[in-house]
Every structure is written in C-alpha cells, then in structure tokens.
C-alpha cells in the first residue's frame, strides 16, 4: 500500500507543470525516503530529477518500494482538476495497476476522486555522480526565466560565461546578437533577490535555449534558481521545492564544430 497526503497540493500541481513538457512518460519511484523521479527527454539531451522527501508530507506510507509508470500529460490533466488550496492524496494499492488522486477542498465540503491506469515503462536511470562545480550561480528564478525568454527571440543557442565580473548570457542569430551580464549582487534587502556567484574557475558553456526555456517552467516553485557549471559536465539547473526537496534539470552542452 502506498499513500501520500500533501496539504499544500499546489506544490504537486506546479511540479507536474514543470516536467510534463520535457518528458512524456516516466516512472515515479516510491520508497521510504520519498517520492522521486528521474527521466530523460526523448533525445537524451536533457534529464529531470525530482525528489520529494517523505518527511515533507503530512502523511506518507510506503509499505514496500513501488514504481508507478505514468503518462505525465494525463497526470497533469487530473491534477489540473485540483484546486490550488486543495489537499492532494495519491494512493496505490499493491498489485493494482491504477493510481488514485484525491482532492479535498480546505473546508472538506468537496472531495474528488480521480483514478488513472498505470503504465509499464522500462526505467532508464543514469548514474549522476555528485560533482564539485567550477561555478555556481544563484539568482532570482524570474530573472533567469526572463533572460532565457528574451535571448530565444535572438537565437536558439545561449553561451553562458562565468568570470569574476559576473555571468554573461549571449545569443546570436539572423537579426543580430545579444549579451546580458548579471553581476554579483548580495546587498539586497530581500535574500530572494540576490545574485550570488561562486567561481572556482572561469567557465564558458553553450546550450540549446529550447531546453533552458522548458526548465524555466519550474519558476513558480521557487524564488531562486541555482545554475551549476563545469567545463566538462552537463549544467545543473535546480529549483528547490519548499521544505520537501528539489527539481534538478541536467542539460548536455553543445560544442563548437
């Protein structure tokens, strides 16, 4: 028997909105430590890793490890039927091939039950080593989303370059070129507005903007985004899920030919 109950159901709604455009079908891994997922997009260029720890739920029961294969678009459709203030419960009985989503309104005067068939998806997990990154940028998530959106109107590729001056986002295309430089800015009154750059080494990497824009769908989850870079590794774009865990996106770089 597996059951989780999340009082702040809106978090789960936002999580699905953050991943459903990148990955079609994925396995949710349920264990005593929590509710997680790791899945690559169809081209194996990007990967999303989700972790919601069990202690972050109001109620969490997982009698034995369980993998639930789901079509994320269908799951998102069902979660869209939950109100932003609803309590969301997900449960699956052992040996059944369905999962139930239950939505309770705050005043408990409306209870909804949605049942979805589970899928058999062969899980393709990658081993992602913990790494020391040469540069780590923490900045307002809305700012990062704005930069990715603006640069994608100039070109389809962004060059991210971290130096001691700050972080530079560059794009070029048929109509011209654009450079956006963000400097370290720790002296703000609200910590969520700060831009903090930890740089061990200067690093420059090139990425496809369409994946970066897909990652920024997670912006509503967190005020800040962390971008970790190293010369010979995929970039990690991480959004914390308030007090529960995170959504991490990994993106393979492009190289100049």
């Amino acid at each position: 028997m597996f059951e989780l109950r999340l009082v702040q159901g809106s978090l789960l709604k936002k999580v699905l909105e953050s991943i459903k455009d990148l990955v079609n079908d994925a396995n949710f891994d349920c264990s005593s430590t929590g509710f997680s997922l790791q899945a690559m997009d169809s081209s194996h260029v990007a990967l999303v890793a989700l972790l919601l720890r069990s202690e972050g739920f109001e109620h969490y029961r997982c009698d034995r490890n369980l993998t639930m294969g789901m079509n994320l678009a269908n799951m998102a459709k069902m979660l869209k039927c939950a109100g932003n203030d609803d309590i969301i419960t997900i449960k699956a009985d052992d040996g059944t091939d369905t999962v139930t989503f239950m939505f309770e309104s705050p005043s408990q005067d409306k209870i909804s039950d949605f049942e979805m068939k589970l899928m058999d998806i062969d899980s393709e997990h990658l081993g992602i080593p913990e790494a020391e990154y040469e540069a780590i940028i923490r900045m307002p998530s809305a700012e990062f989303a704005r930069i990715c959106r603006d640069l994608s109107s100039i070109g389809d590729t962004v060059v991210i370059s971290v130096t001691k001056e700050g972080v530079r986002f560059s794009a070029r295309g048929d109509i011209g070129a654009a450079n956006i430089v963000c400097r370290q800015n720790a002296t703000v009154d609200k910590p969520e507005d700060a831009t903090i750059i930890e740089m061990q080494e200067p690093v420059t990497l090139t990425f496809a903007l369409r994946y970066m824009n897909s990652f920024t769908k997670a912006t509503p989850l967190a005020e800040q985004v962390t971008i970790s870079m190293s010369s010979d590794l995929p970039v990690v774009v991480e959004y914390k899920v308030a007090g529960m865990g995170y959504i991490r996106y990994y993106l393979a770089p492009k190289i100049e030919e």
Partner: peptide, 14 residues
C-alpha cells in the same frame, strides 16, 4: 556550427 552532445556521454547507465 555547434554539435549537441547527449547525457549518456557524461553519465553512465545504471
């Protein structure tokens, strides 16, 4: 011209 790399070139399959 930029060549898009893929994640399995960096991370090993479990």
């Amino acid at each position: 011209y930029t060549l898009q790399l893929h994640l399995p070139e960096f991370f090993v399959w479990k």
